[in-house]
Design a protein around this nucleic acid. Structure first.
Lengths: 337, 337
DNA sequence: CACGATACTGGAAACGATTACATAGGGAAC
DNA sequence: GTTCCCTATGTAATCGTTTCCAGTATCGTG
């Protein structure tokens, strides 16, 4: 049973030597190394990470905190995180943490305290100060992706700048009656993202000398959310905007579907721009600002793992890595008729 | 450091007693129990599951094998699995296993062999015999959800019967020129699901005495996939079917969007039925057969965990739990004009 | 009162690795 | 030829739990 002991016996060496041979740490002659490896292969030995982590303190796995997975950005991120971690030899344990609730506390106290991971990646969740402190006290590095978490390294796009850019795209085309359709706290995504995109919109409008009051509609961050918002916003021909900046491509697509149902033609009757780079964008000829979640994810893994491997650098410098975005112009936007 | 030892010292008892008090196993007087608990609370003690699993052999976590995350069914399942497992005190470790490739072998050999989990849930993946055998040899129960895995308990809808039902819905309405749009192996989802849904379609058509050749179009299992298939299928008014059975709601929605772009009106010009119960279905007034992935997921967790907790029942009876489905009729289907 | 359960507790041996420390041979440097 | 360093290996301690075993006190029962 004692697995490595078996390997050692079979190879005619001590447990310590076997361990060194297999892990590659410390001195082992080439000859014994191959003997040990052969013995291990013979009995199909695989090390117990539990036993190892008991003494090393490293678990070779990272915890990922995510509020939901069915939203496009999150699913993409999750998939890439897993691949990147796997490639680096790490397991990924998933914690689907609700944004606010008692459940959340339970997750933290019960699961995260068990320190079954070397580090944590939180995607789109803004952890509270006490939560960050708790992780920090446990010596577990934390890297965020999406929302900015104070006290932790974060990979994210510049939401304000991106929203401003999207709005400016419409302004440059000559639109003046522009609305912003996005999420709000009630629709259960993190507050900061919504606020920032709204801020960017407002800034751009103000800079252009246009009124910003009454320019925002809230909806769920989904296609149906955008659809409903669209029906409400576009129904009345007399107070219909000429352009809409949607906070996500899914919302934008919902808007487009609503517009089509109302008999409007894009981009003549309405220009729409989104943010994301969702596969639907191409299908609907949607102008959008791509944010490449998969790249963000691999960047996040890189950041966490280097932090993990150079433990000395416990410089908890609140650092933000800005992920690049790019505007893709398609036929959903044009100058107003 | 030796955490439980600290608790024990603080409470003035032996490590063994402290362990018993905290775990609830074995005899402990009410008095000492509360002393121990108080001491544990004082220093904020949480047991190391690593150390515990080293001796008990249980890790309190299950591995989930999933081919991709961004598809609706999979995302829903994953989210529910996580919640159900968390509620039962289990961690969930995610393995995003590609359907076919060398990577897959690597995952199995390297990660799954580390036996960091008490059981495995495979969603929509049909594991090979050797893979099942490997898990079985390790004494790790396996429950599948979605595709049927020979040699393991599986929770799944009856794909053939569901496809037949969908087709029969169209037949009953009086349609005779019906097409099936679904996935195939080239579009990287598991083969069996596609085949089964196609089989159900073919069976229903044959029973109705209708021709089945040339009645199937393959596409990606996504909205854009259905969209492209729709443009191709519906462009020519002379050989346009009066009804389409789409293998998923996402495909169906793509078809509807394509139909609208081509100027068709549902259900007059075309009837469309899907399978899933996707949130988009309601938005597009899509008739569909709901399969309730969240229920399937909790059912799967229940199955695995009871198997886990009653280890004696190592009766590897190949059992299939059929998840219920239900037809929801909306206005995307009607008798042909 | 003796005896066997029954409740409770502590000591010590696991579980399966890693690693600090000790030992020993061989070559380079002086 | 001594000294020192480097390679190579073995012994034993360690990580933090659970659990087996043994021992003691209490209590009901015949």
């Amino acid at each position: 049973m004692s697995a490595i002991a078996d390997v050692a016996r079979r190879a005619g060496v001590a447990k310590a030597t076997a361990s060194r041979a297999l892990s590659g740490r410390g001195y082992v002659s080439e000859e014994t190394r191959s003997k040990v490896i052969a013995a291990a292969a013979q009995i199909g030995y695989v090390a117990s990470p539990n036993a190892a982590s008991l003494v090393t303190g490293r678990t070779q796995s990272v915890g990922v905190i995510i509020p939901f997975i069915s939203r496009w950005f999150f699913a993409e991120v999750l998939e890439s995180l897993e691949q990147a971690l796997l490639a680096r030899g790490y397991d990924m344990t998933l914690y689907n943490l609700p944004t606010h609730s008692a459940e959340r506390e339970r997750v933290f106290d019960f699961f995260l305290a068990r320190k079954r991971f070397d580090g944590v990646i939180s995607v789109g969740v803004e952890l509270s100060d006490t939560e960050v402190a708790q992780l920090h006290r446990m010596g577990r590095p934390l890297v965020g992706i999406g929302g900015e978490t104070p006290g932790a390294h974060t990979v994210a796009i510049d939401d304000i700048a991106t929203a401003r850019l999207a709005t400016e795209h419409l302004l440059t085309l000559g639109h003046t009656d522009i609305r912003h359709v996005g999420g709000d706290q009630a629709h259960q995504m993190d507050f900061a993202v919504h606020t920032k995109r709204l801020t960017g919109f407002t800034e751009a409008m103000r800079t252009a000398g246009l009124p910003t009051d009454n320019g925002f509609s809230a909806c769920a961050f989904t296609v149906p959310g955008g659809y409903e918002a669209g029906l409400a916003l576009l129904a009345d021909p007399h107070q219909r905007p000429t352009a809409v900046f949607a906070a996500s491509d899914e919302i934008a697509v919902g808007l487009i579907i609503a517009a089509r149902e109302l008999g409007l033609h894009l981009p003549d009757d309405l220009s729409v721009i989104g943010i994301d780079g969702h596969p639907y964008a191409e299908m609907f000829q949607l102008t959008t600002i791509e944010q490449h979640p998969r790249n963000q994810a691999t960047l996040t893994v890189d950041t966490l793992l280097t932090e993990l491997e150079n433990t000395p650098t416990t410089t908890t410098t609140h650092l933000v890595t800005r992920a690049p975005t790019n505007l893709v112009t398609r036929s959903s936007t044009s100058p107003p008729r």
